[in-house]
Design a protein around this nucleic acid. Structure first.
Length: 810
RNA sequence: GCGAGAGUGGUGGAAUGGUAGACACGCUAGAUUUAGGAUCUAGUGCCUCACGGCGUGCGGGUUCAAGUCCCGCCUCUCGCACCA
């Protein structure tokens, strides 16, 4: 075996091309519909068609593909679709900046990306592709909207909304980010604007959305969603305002009611003007106007000194009948609770700060510990200064207070959420038209189902004016009322694109089905999604909306389960080589097409999986990919003759090492530990190369057949090449995943570690089934330990079977 | 401030409470080559000529044995943030 370098002409790109063509010709990735097998619906978040697949797409999709391939070989019928999230702002911006129609821009990007997806060598079932900007897709967005409306889950409301002055559009609360409250997309500070908007009642499902018991999702996502929903248990308490009427507050600390020494309303609270006394009118009006003019940034600055103004009015504390002054202050937010609070300075630092500044009384209602030297006290302790609550601990005091309030009809226990309803209206062109017609006679009238889809007109003027572009399209806008036939106007807003991604996993099942959003027969065969993968950035938007959608679909009788995706894995983010986010302006963008040309798709796939744990992401390493490319070449060279390389290795270990590698790769792939799976295969390759001259052909080919199958999910092209090279019939991807004999896993020879007082002093080769006594004898016989025993007695010895002997001396 | 996660060689990272640093990058030396950013061989945690010692952010603790478990800090990342 001295003939060397048989593959000097190794060219991964042409090798991969060849197999990709073969896969397409043979229909290898058409979905397996064999219902005798257990189903596995593997889903990766659908990409936005920005023009090119970047490394981030590869990082998201190729490990998902590897896992899906692993499941397929493990005996599942696997559905692994892909599509394009094709509505949204970038298309419209391209249109504005470059004069290309959003549709043309989007479609040409999609065509480009389809070809790039092909290069990836993924097992996507391309026949189920969904493009969300097509009428056959968005028609069902409109259909869902009508269903939501019927169910009372969609409503219209005039409300101040977050508005991005650059993008000229409404933003959902989730799309406003950071302490500066900027637009998620362009970084412009958002402003408030009053508009009539359509909303979905996601808050109706707040409680159920807090229940994660039916899904295996990362703790992180569950925590983010839980915090986002923000459930607070407490009480609503009614304060009578003489001369006006009742005002309600929400509090999580009803036990502190006796310490409520003043009352604060948000400046936006509609009752502020009504309760204000004539003497205070001027001051209050001035304050409210000032608060309204403040930017969100200033308004929400926690370090700012508290400000407020006395309204001249008083509220009656229902616990003790005392009059307490009512202030308007901007530290109370209109958007949470009732927009008014009872202020308890003794137990709340914000109220303490306010009370100190405006010289208001402070009464402690919880006894702080002796050594407490802070201001407001929020810890545990017995109630004081609280009449019938005195001496009770907080939890019990809360209960008793609520009971007392309920008796008087002055309050009740209640739950408040931070979650707001989902605002879906967008004043943009490139989205799904909202199927509503406004009739002067009949008000907002839903477009009849049989008239769907309401087509998005192609010839719209989409330059942003602050108005919905469709408003300027007379042909679209002017219609007849579906009820009376009189002249009416269409809704000219379009839907938030999160609508599209809330149910796309269902559409994949039957992308051209026209009797409903999806074919229920297909649904019964495949739903719900078993494994979802995607970025953590969608933790509180997309992932909450799609859960909400599924629960509504369940209540509409469309599905019979509660959660859309049973398992979720969040991959990390690939950064540039400088460890910064990849961006054109930084010049640190890594182009996968260049890498594929140079190293091949398998090398790029494997490198991205090898770089570290998948959920961790990390900086790109331009040199690291060389190592993986080398590994693939070396692995492939196993099928050719060549000199053995590497350190001495024992050919007799071939069966056990193959079994151990199989076990490792199997367990690692099942758990998304791609990095260690590849490391295991690298180690095995090094071993195989070292023993290639000393193994008989039969055992060698057995080992290679196993190797090719273990490699198949990770490097599908190279595995195919190997499989063919050992003379096996096409295709390795249709083979069963290799099993392994547990009895081969166990080592026969072990390195027995000899420790003295827990420190390693010697290593001795020994049979694995060595007895405790023999092991200890061996230990004592070791010359290396003798110096450590001089003048000492062995007090104890510990034997860990198959591992070590620890001699405790002293 | 609140919540979550993470700190291991020059680098990315491995390690059911039981040989710390697998695997890979990089580096050093050598072989081969007209040459190579190709391939192969040997080495590579730190200190020390060596014996040996020291090593998983810091300080304690539990244990025969701690990167791993417990307590207290420090640092970094992410999320939320005047949410009553």
């Amino acid at each position: 075996m001295s003939e060397t370098r048989p593959r000097k002409t190794y060219d991964p790109t042409s090798l991969e091309h060849r197999w990709q063509e073969r896969w397409t010709e043979s229909g290898l990735y058409e979905t397996d519909e064999d219902t005798d097998k257990p189903k596995h619906y593997a889903l990766t978040m659908l990409p936005y068609p920005s023009g090119d697949l970047h490394v981030g797409h590869w990082y998201a999709m190729t490990p998902s593909d590897t896992h899906a391939r692993f499941m397929r070989m493990s005996g599942y019928r696997v559905f692994f679709p892909i599509g394009f999230d094709a509505f949204g702002l970038p298309a419209e911006n391209a249109a504005i900046n470059r004069g290309i129609h959003p549709y043309k821009w989007t479609i040409s990007n999609i065509e480009n990306m389809r070809g790039q997806l092909e290069q990836m060598g993924a097992m996507f079932d391309r026949s189920s592709e969904v493009v969300t900007c097509t009428p056959e897709y968005y028609r069902w967005n409109q259909w869902f909207f009508l269903k939501f409306l019927e169910k009372g889950l969609a409503y219209r409301k005039e409300a101040p909304v977050d508005w991005c002055p650059k993008d000229n559009t409404t933003l959902a609360r989730e799309q406003v980010v950071g302490p500066d409250r900027v637009c998620e997309r362009c970084g412009t500070p958002v402003i408030k604007k009053n508009l009539a908007q359509w909303l979905f009642r996601i808050t109706d499902y707040a409680e159920e959305l807090l229940d994660f018991s039916k899904i295996e999702w990362p703790e992180r996502v569950k925590t983010l969603q839980t915090n986002w929903i923000g459930r607070s248990e407490g009480a609503e308490i009614v304060f009578e305002v003489p001369g006006y009427g009742p005002l309600e507050v929400f509090t999580t600390r009803p036990d502190t009611l006796f310490g409520a020494t003043f009352f604060v309303m948000s400046p936006e609270h509609p009752a502020v003007a009504k309760i204000t006394t004539p003497e205070q009118s001027e001051a209050v009006t001035e304050y409210v106007e000032k608060a309204g003019r403040m930017t969100e940034i200033d308004r929400t600055d926690v370090t700012r000194e508290k400000t407020g103004v006395f309204t001249g009015a008083y509220a009656i504390n229902p616990a003790n009948g005392q009059d307490i002054p009512i202030y308007a202050a901007d530290y109370v937010l209109m958007g949470y609770g009732t927009g008014a609070i009872m202020a308890v300075p003794g137990q709340d630092q914000r109220d303490w700060d306010f009370a100190t500044k405006y010289d208001l009384p402070i009464i402690r209602t919880v006894q702080p510990p002796e050594d407490f030297d802070g201001e407001a006290y929020v810890g545990e302790g017995p109630a004081i200064n609280s009449d019938f609550l005195d001496g009770l601990e907080i939890e019990e005091a809360k209960q008793r207070m609520i009971e007392a309030l309920e008796e008087k009809g002055a309050g009740e226990s209640t739950v408040t959420y931070r979650l707001r309803d989902w605002l879906i209206s967008r004043q943009r062109y490139w989205g799904t038209p909202i199927p509503i017609i406004y009739c002067p006679e009949h008000g907002p009238v839903p477009v009849p189902e049989e008239d769907l889809p309401v087509l998005l007109p192609e010839d719209a003027e989409f330059t942003p004016t602050g108005e919905s572009p469709l408003k300027l399209h007379e042909g679209f806008r002017n219609v007849e009322c579906p009820i009376c036939g009189g002249p009416a106007e269409r809704e000219t807003d379009t839907m938030d694109t999160f609508m599209d991604s809330s149910w796309y996993q269902y559409r994949y099942l039957s992308p051209h089905y026209d009797e409903g959003p999806f074919d229920p027969e297909r649904g019964a065969k495949w739903l719900p999604v078993d494994q979802y993968t995607g970025g953590i950035e969608h933790a509180v938007m997309h992932l909450l909306y799609t859960r909400f959608f599924t629960k509504v679909m369940r209540d509409l009788g469309l599905v019979d389960f509660d959660e859309p995706m049973l398992k979720l894995f969040n991959q990390g983010i690939i950064l540039g080589e400088d460890a910064e986010k990849m961006s054109k302006s930084r010049g640190n963008v890594v182009n996968p097409q260049d890498l594929v040309e140079r190293y091949g798709s398998d090398a790029l796939r494997c490198f991205l999986m090898f770089i570290g744990p998948w959920d961790q992401g990390g900086p790109w390493d331009g040199r690291g990919i060389e190592g993986v490319a080398r590994f693939l070449r070396r692995a492939l060279s196993l099928t050719a003759t060549g000199d053995a390389t590497g350190a001495d290795a024992d050919p007799a270990e071939l069966p056990s090492r193959t079994a151990r590698t199989t076990k490792k790769v199997t367990e690692d792939l099942a758990a998304f530990r791609f990095n260690t799976a590849i490391a295991g295969l690298m180690e095995h390759t090094n071993y195989l190369l070292a023993v290639r001259d000393d193994v008989d052909e039969g055992s060698w080919n057995d080992a290679l057949r196993t190797f090719a199958r273990l490699l198949a999910p990770l490097a599908p092209h190279h595995a195919e090449e190997m499989w063919a090279a050992v003379g096996e019939p096409y295709s390795v991807h249709e083979q069963a995943w290799p099993g392994y004999d547990e009895s081969l896993i166990a080592e026969k020879e072990i390195t027995l570690i000899i420790q003295v007082n827990g420190k390693v002093r010697d290593r001795i080769e020994a049979p694995a089934d060595i007895s405790e006594d023999t092991a200890k004898e061996l230990a004592l016989a070791s010359e290396k330990i003798h110096p450590h025993l001089v003048g000492k007695q062995i007090r104890k010895s510990i034997y860990v079977p198959g591992r070590l002997v620890n001699l405790v001396v002293g």
